[in-house]
């Protein structure tokens, strides 16, 4: 039987038959449905995914008129990874004028609100200069990164040390204190950058430190939205699942630990978030057909319940894109096409 070129989640090439691809597509959607307690993809969607994988071209795309918005996080940091010696403003211009970015984010290399707080006065003129030489909306963004609030990096006791000692209440209190401190830093830095003209604020890689991380972001978004009702707030997730590092934290009466994208987005809406960036992680030991089918299943469920725009995270290690520094175009374009054509989303 004819073999079709595709890849594994770690980027390594693999050749599969149509039957094997179809089997992985079915398994991938079934796995997502089981985990997220959401509907699996129907026959039509599975056939469409199979067609995308059997197109013989290296690069695939969508029909004219079906193009969607491309927003980027941390682009000013990523372009230097490919060896381009450009400053951040030049990086923004490259993305805007050469790559067709619809929005960009100015980011500092430390990329955490806590680290940026003492240097926010240095960041403001960079943003102001950038706004003068670009046309697309410019976000300022960073990670909530609650890991920086516990010892040795921060003031609060380290829960990873307290938990093995059985000091569960103390560990939880440390997380709660971290949330309070992080909210203050996020609001402080965001306010400064908004006052300098930022078109929006991007809370990136939210939930990386579990439920306290997600809670801090939701609270910061709520405060900022009250302060600046017209502000665009983008909230991008770190992973598909909110880890219960604390386990008992709630927002608006909903327990945060264990939430999947279709549940996360409802809380983002309530907090006043304008654009939600859901994530589905790529499994390196499974094929891209398996990963893409799984990812599309989660994203479809998320987009169906969302009342705010969805910009799916599609990059290294997420959205069925391979976990490689330079994701291959065959995978990126197929994953993007599938997301646009099957999932009712608004941007990538």
């Amino acid at each position: 039987m004819k073999k079709i070129f595709t890849r594994m989640g770690d980027g390594s090439p693999v050749e599969m038959t149509e039957t094997e691809i179809r089997r992985d597509l079915e398994e991938g959607t079934r796995e997502a449905a089981l985990r997220g307690k959401i509907p699996a993809l129907g026959e039509g969607d599975l056939k469409h995914l199979l067609e995308i994988f059997t197109i013989p071209f290296r690069f695939v795309s969508v029909e004219r008129g079906k193009e969607i918005v491309l927003s980027y996080d941390a682009g000013t940091l990523k372009i230097r990874r490919v060896g381009l010696s450009v400053n951040r403003i030049q990086a923004l211009q490259i993305y805007e004028k050469l790559f067709g970015a619809d929005t960009m984010e100015l980011a500092h290399v430390d990329y955490s609100f806590k680290s940026i707080k003492p240097i926010v006065g240095n960041e403001q003129p960079v943003l102001e200069q950038a706004l003068l030489v670009t046309h697309i909306p410019l976000f300022y963004g960073a990670m909530p990164n609650l890991g920086l609030y516990s010892q040795p990096d921060g003031p609060f006791p380290n829960p990873a040390e307290l938990l093995p000692q059985g000091k569960i209440a103390e560990a939880r209190r440390s997380y709660e204190d971290s949330v309070e401190a992080a909210v203050k830093d996020m609001v402080y830095v965001s306010t400064a950058m908004i006052e300098s003209g930022a078109d929006g604020i991007n809370f990136d890689t939210t939930g990386a430190a579990g439920d306290p991380d997600f809670l801090a972001t939701l609270r910061a978004a709520e405060i900022l939205k009250k302060k600046y009702p017209d502000l665009c707030i983008e909230l991008g997730m770190a992973g598909e699942f909110v880890l219960g590092m604390h386990g008992g934290l709630e927002y608006d009466g909903v327990r945060l630990a264990g939430l999947y994208p279709h549940q996360q987005v409802k809380l983002a809406e309530k907090a006043g978030v304008t654009i939600f960036g859901p994530v589905v992680n790529t499994n390196t030991s499974r094929s891209i057909p398996w990963n893409l089918s799984r990812s599309v299943t989660f994203m479809k469920a998320c987009a169906e319940v969302s009342r705010i725009p969805i910009h799916v995270n599609m990059g290294m290690g997420v959205g069925a894109v391979t976990v490689t520094d330079h994701p291959p175009i065959d995978v990126v374009s197929r994953a993007s096409k599938a997301m646009v054509e099957i999932t009712r989303l608004d941007g990538l």
């Binding site: 059985g166 569960i168 939880r172 880890l243 386990g247």
Partner: peptide
């Protein structure tokens, strides 16, 4: 299944 998390499991064990 991701319905309980480490702090809760530790409390249960305690």
């Amino acid at each position: 299944n991701g319905e309980m998390f480490i702090p809760e499991v530790l409390q249960s064990a305690a």
